[in-house]
Design a protein around this nucleic acid. Structure first.
Lengths: 218, 218, 218, 218
DNA sequence: AATGAATGAGTTTTCATTCAT
DNA sequence: CATGAATGAAAACTCATTCAT
């Protein structure tokens, strides 16, 4: 049920190596900064202090480094989504769980996000990365399901267009980590996540204390 | 005060040329589909039915085509923002104006959005595209100003973190056009815009008719 | 019915160019000398007096140069075979026609032979070169058919194993031109072809005028 | 007078090692399938279940594996040729001996043939493999001598061009084993060899019924 | 305005080989 | 004997750009 590549095709040793993990992390940092395509294997090798050809001792292509990073990320994210759904709370609680777990996954996979944002076109077209589209479909389906359930339960607005709302939300979801480290003076991921949930549930409008209507008088 | 390149830089004929405009549009469509960097000048030339070298009769570089597209877009967008602010209504009305004008600009400049999303890193680093960062700063400043004003006027929640809210919102703003044409069965740009505003102002929670309070997540 | 690639996918100009034809001929000479894989694009470019990258203005890959050479050759060869069969003479005359036309094709496509001999494994595995296998099958089938017809007509030995005989013959067929130019002092292609036909029809044994019988191999 | 490398060059242990012999056999199988150059040391190592670097404990280069295989093969083949000549029968019997011994050698050295066919250019240029050219010269010389002797004895056609006939024959000689295992339903090496000799001596033409008869009655 | 040919700097990738452990 | 990591040289290919015609 997981997305992760089977280790079978290459010697297991290659996948386990500590050096290899180092290189993936290193490459990830560069991808996070400049995007996948814009990062050359030479740059990765330079950062690792080796020659570019030497990378191919550990990976059989640049793509496979990307694969490893993306698959790991989506595995984590989907894991969080599925766990949230499996907990079987009410839709609002489920969404809260989802958002919190996403924030965690994002924090631990900084590179994957940039890669998906910058190079989505590049990856999504290749058969090798078919799982990207599949994962996106599953994520959308979970959101839409929860939003509809919330409507049915009277928790969310009855006039909510669930698929459209998901679309509107989608990119916002990626934001918490998009903040450059140190770019958000004094606000940690938790605060950002809370602000997001607050915005999602309640919007920005102040609760109308004395007025009957929520809408303004003009 | 506008961003557009001075016409003086290049032969007036070139700028006036209908062929040139055609080529920019054509290139824009390709950029919208695949991103700026991922589109080769050969592809643009192929689409135009000429050889790649011939493009350099019209433009002195691929970058300058991108420049033209982005500058035109940001000019429109900033125009809308400034007009909204100049109208001097209350913050909520101003924000509505901003969102509506953004939706219009986005519809007319499909290519620019994809370029900014996919190739932001590429452009934002170059001095030539310094105006991109400047425009983004102006846009952020206008949003933050309006959000703060709304708080001061008691329209928006007092606990709103304006800069953070803007960040959360930002990518959502780009969405309306991101929908592939025909991808949103039956929903036109207007409906999408309305849904966005509704989400922004009120969130997804149903108005609690009989309940005491709606209250937050913690 | 021909093997030649449709010109449709690339601008017709590219296929027609005189320069392009020059380059194919040039590459062919190198392939003939050293084999396809053993020849680098740099060598081809050097021979043409340009940089290796410039070759890609004319071809989209080294493989496609090989494709052009091989397809042209097989087209000629198969043309000769089909014409020989269409002439509807007796099998011996048909085989003579086939051998003569093969000798001609070989003389005009020196490179193709070396490529097929040295790099058969390389090409025959790729889907792009599926026509190679198809052509070989057709050639074999024509030979076997003619050999069987000759047996039925009493022209060829009744104990002839047609498929096996073709196998034995096959490589011999390609030889006439394989002789390095100047390597066969005084013998032109015609003499070689005649010697081949004589060997094929009569073997090397002298006609036994007065002797009783000559033995067999046990 | 043998071609085999002097054992003195490398530690006796290495030559004696059973593991080493295994590796040569293994490499040979891969060479037979894909050719020498097209087979990477990594593939050989993979097949042996070790890492590519570890091969260099047994051989000092990939070339030296090829050397071992080719030298062994040519040693066997030349041995057969020389023995056939030393038997001092008539030319026809000598040729029969040669062909039979070649067939045996080929059966036992499948890899060597593919290597010579695919990578002749690669090897024949190197000083280290000078013995290849020498062996080929000796083989040709023996054939030509036997053919000429047969002509002088009135056994072979007086108009036979001996060097040219050898050239025509040459590739056919290698065939018997070239048949993929299982590719020749029901025909073993012996049958193939007989068919070859029959073709060589008598050609494919049926004995002319009304003439005295060149051939037997069947 | 456009062609056709080329440049040149860069890209990913391949692979035999070396060597400290 | 073998590993694991690396080298280094060369391979095929990409692509924005130039320029004489």
């Amino acid at each position: 049920m997981t997305i992760a590549k089977k280790a079978a095709d290459r010697p297991a040793a290659a996948l386990a190596s500590a050096r290899r993990a180092d290189l993936v992390r290193l490459a990830g940092e560069l991808f996070a900064e400049k995007g996948f395509r814009a990062t050359t294997v030479r740059e990765i090798a330079d950062a690792a202090g080796i020659l570019s050809g030497s990378l191919y001792h550990h990976f059989d292509s640049k793509e496979s480094i990307g694969d490893e990073i993306l698959a790991g990320f989506l595995n984590d994210v989907l894991g969080g989504y599925r766990a949230a759904v499996a907990a079987e709370s009410d839709p609002r609680a489920t969404i809260e769980r989802i958002v919190h777990s996403s924030a965690t996954a994002l924090t631990e996979h900084r590179a994957a996000l940039t890669m998906l944002q910058n190079d989505w076109n590049h990856f999504s077209g290749q058969p090798r990365f078919a799982y990207l589209r599949a994962a996106m479909r599953e994520i959308e389906q979970i959101w839409v399901t929860q939003l509809e359930a919330g409507k049915a339960a009277g928790l969310f607005r009855a006039d909510l267009d669930a698929p459209l709302t998901y679309r509107l939300l989608r990119d916002m979801l990626w934001i918490p980590i998009h903040h450059r480290p140190g770019g958000d003076r004094g606000r940690g991921p938790d605060q950002v996540t809370e602000a997001f949930l607050r915005l999602l549930f309640d919007g920005i409008t102040a609760a109308a204390p004395a007025r009957k209507a929520r809408r303004r008088t003009a």
